[in-house]
């Protein structure tokens, strides 16, 4: 009986390990530096996590549906460049919907390839990472993109303004997270995403249109990327072509940290948001502790490995892998 309790404790620790580690981290940092838990610091961290977070929410849908999306970083560069370029050409009022339409078109193309043609998502999105990067460079001619009149545009609202003292990016992040969390957990579409990712064949045998569901997850992912591109462009009002480079892997790191399985069928929007915030706060905490930025890379490395390890160890009941 005592053994059993200890086992339960172990599996509890393993399951909630990431949250526990997070809380310990926060306490530790707070003791080292009071500034860490200051309101403006916390708000700053969430604000700077917003772009990563918005994309991660979209990718959560793709991952739960049993696929990967490595093209989001490249796609965000595209959205950012496009909206900045069109801003001066057709005005922000038209540039934003045009950028959303183009980004969704890219998402639809990927969704078509993965959903309807059933091509491997890792390779497709790898190819699209490269292809969209080429598209971005072609659009911009390889040059940085800047808005000519940076002070005279309302376009900066999304990235720089505040509503009732709360930065707009945080509001957008929170709103998107809330809406998409409801979509995933409460609607029949959300249920179907879990079914398709959990067991695609059984979903088909239950009359669920698997191809369409996968297609939709990529559309959602592209929509989130477009929002992120808008935030990025609005914050900086100018951008390089490679602004989103490498983001896809950070996003995946956050999603995995949140506990979603790359095999599909598990994960939630809330957990992904926690994953994003963990990454953000660790980065911030290490910087405030006077450590250089690269330390966060190594800490993230350790945390991902430990989090995933604990998760699978809890599932198989052994710490060490059974591989001979």
């Amino acid at each position: 009986m005592t053994v059993l309790t200890r086992q339960n404790l172990g599996s509890f620790l393993a399951k909630q390990g990431i949250l526990i580690a997070f809380v310990l981290f926060m306490i530790g940092f707070a003791m080292v530096n009071q500034r860490f838990i200051a309101m403006d610091n916390i708000s700053g961290v969430i604000r700077s996590s917003a772009i990563l977070g918005v994309i991660a929410i979209g990718v959560t849908f793709v991952v739960i549906g049993g696929n990967l999306d490595l093209s989001v970083g490249s796609m965000m560069s595209f959205s950012t460049i496009v909206v900045l370029d069109l801003h001066d050409k057709i005005g922000p009022g038209l540039a934003i919907p045009a950028m959303f339409a183009l980004t969704l078109l890219l998402g639809a193309f990927i969704g078509f390839l993965v959903g309807y043609l059933k091509l491997n998502s890792l390779i497709v999105t790898l190819g699209m990472l490269s292809a969209i990067h080429g598209l971005t460079l072609t659009w911009s001619g390889g040059k940085n993109m800047d808005i000519a009149d940076k002070s005279g545009t309302w376009f900066s609202f999304f990235g720089q303004d505040r509503i009732m003292g709360i930065p707009v990016p945080i509001l957008i992040f929170a709103l998107l997270a809330a809406v998409l969390a409801m979509v995933l957990s409460r609607t029949s579409f959300g249920r179907k995403v879990y079914a398709v990712g959990g067991n695609g064949q059984a979903a088909t045998f239950s009359g669920i249109p698997r191809a369409r569901i996968v297609f939709m997850t990529y559309l959602i992912s592209a929509f989130c990327v477009a929002v992120a591109g808008l935030l990025q462009a609005s914050r900086s009002l100018g951008s390089q072509n490679t602004v989103g480079q490498g983001l896809e892997l950070q996003v995946l790191a956050a999603v995995i940290l949140g506990g979603a399985s790359l095999l599909g069928g598990s994960g939630t929007v809330f957990k992904t948001v926690i994953g994003v915030l963990i990454l953000g706060f660790i980065q911030n905490g290490l910087l405030l502790a006077g450590l250089d930025f690269y330390v966060q890379y190594m800490v993230t490395w350790a945390i991902i490995i430990l989090a995933v390890w604990l998760d699978i160890a809890a599932k198989r009941g052994h710490l060490w892998s059974p591989i001979a």
Partner: peptide
């Protein structure tokens, strides 16, 4: 197991 049920659900 492969066609009838989504085992994780």
């Amino acid at each position: 197991k492969d066609q009838g049920l989504v085992l994780g659900m």
